[in-house]
Amino acid sequence: MGMPDAEGHGPPDGLPDLPPEWGRVVVPDDASALAEEARQVRRELRVARRQATSRQRPGPAGRAAPGLPVLVLLVALLITLTGLAAVTWPRSSRSGGAPTVLPYPTAPIGPLPALDLVGPDDAPVPLRSLLPAMIILVDACVCAEEVGTAAATAPPGVTVVTVTESRSAGSATAPGVRPLADPAGGLRSYLHLSAHPGTAAALLVDRRGTLVRVVPDLGPVTDYRDDLVRLAG
């Protein structure tokens, strides 16, 4: 229930109190007495609606030029094409010689897979039973001279093995060399090494079965002598 004002007027029974800052509220008996105030309120509402609408419309000064996004896209495309051209443009060799070509991808350096190869008597030979070893892949090149040099350089305890992908291991091409066959090509498949005519790749594996080095093209013994000696350690 509301409290009456100083003149004894208060809100009707059952209605809540009005905020005190409103002051005294007088409800006229004739509603037409409020017509002027109603027109004033409608005028203020129309002005407020027009101001809100004008703020939502972008003016000419705030309107972005329609060609600007297209220009930004063209600049980005030009930069991208320039970068691609710089990467793919053919370059001439500064030395005047043939460009350097890597004949083999980088082989994994880690544990050698537990493969069973085939001996001269067609019996299975576990590859890990021959470690430490220098394994020479001779399916693309017999390379008898290079294989003989490796066998003569290998220290005691290091087995020199030749591996071919034919069904037969064949015979040894040098003293102290053990010929084996890998008909399934599991060794080259694991190493991702493709055969190149006239070259023989070599694998240096320590006694724990870790592939410590890949020699893509068996060449002078000075290229791998130190690693071969370390296999015996």
Rank of each mutant, 00 (worst) to 15 (best):
S189W: 06
E146S: 14
V118M: 07
R167K: 08
V75Y: 00
T159S: 14
V118L: 13
V142D: 08
S93T: 14
S166L: 02
V70T: 04
L77W: 11
A133P: 05
R91W: 03
L191N: 03
T162N: 03
Y190F: 06
G176K: 13
P156I: 01
L180V: 04
Y104W: 07
R188P: 03
T88D: 10
V142C: 05
Y104H: 08
G176S: 13
S166E: 10
L73W: 06
D116V: 04
T100V: 14
G170A: 01
L102V: 09
S95G: 14
P108T: 13
L117P: 00
P156A: 09
L74H: 05
V72S: 10
A114K: 13
T80E: 09
T162E: 03
L117N: 03
G185Q: 09
V70E: 14
A107C: 01
D182T: 05
A184P: 11
A65T: 05
G170P: 08
P111N: 10
D121T: 07
T106E: 15
R128Y: 01
P111T: 07
L191C: 04
P155T: 03
A123I: 15
C141T: 05
A154I: 02
I135T: 09
L102E: 02
A150H: 06
T162Y: 04
A154V: 01
T149Q: 09
L102G: 00
G67A: 06
V75L: 13
L130C: 00
L77H: 07
D182M: 07
L191I: 09
V138G: 02
E146K: 15
S189F: 02
V101H: 02
T106Q: 15
P124M: 02
T162K: 01
L81Q: 15
P69K: 04
